[in-house]
Amino acid sequence: MKIKQDAVLKTGWLVVACLFILGGCTTTAVQPWERGVLAKEEMSWSPNRLETTLNGHIYFSKEASSGGGAAAGGGCGCN
């Protein structure tokens, strides 16, 4: 148990480090008129909202892990 707690703490620091690195990274400014590709639906994080909901519910019911953002799934998940 202690080993796993240490792993969690180390991972927590890793996350904080990643956030600082990402927040501070320098990239070439992409102007609004250059963002046509980024605006494409296939570039979104969740292109199909109902599919995202369904996947969250199925994997929540069948695996011991869930979330990664807000709480995933509703219901017992017993089956």
């Binding site: 609004p32 008129w33 963002r35 046509g36 980024l38 605006a39 494409k40 639906e41 570039m43 979104s44 994080w45 969740s46 909202r49 995202t52 909901t53 969250g56 979330g67 990664g68 953002g69 807000a70 995933a72």
Partner: peptide
Amino acid sequence: MSDAVKQLARSALAIPGLVSMA
């Protein structure tokens, strides 16, 4: 704000697993 930027903002914000994130 242009439609492209609006669409981009919609695309780029959501965290995986969220149903109705930013």
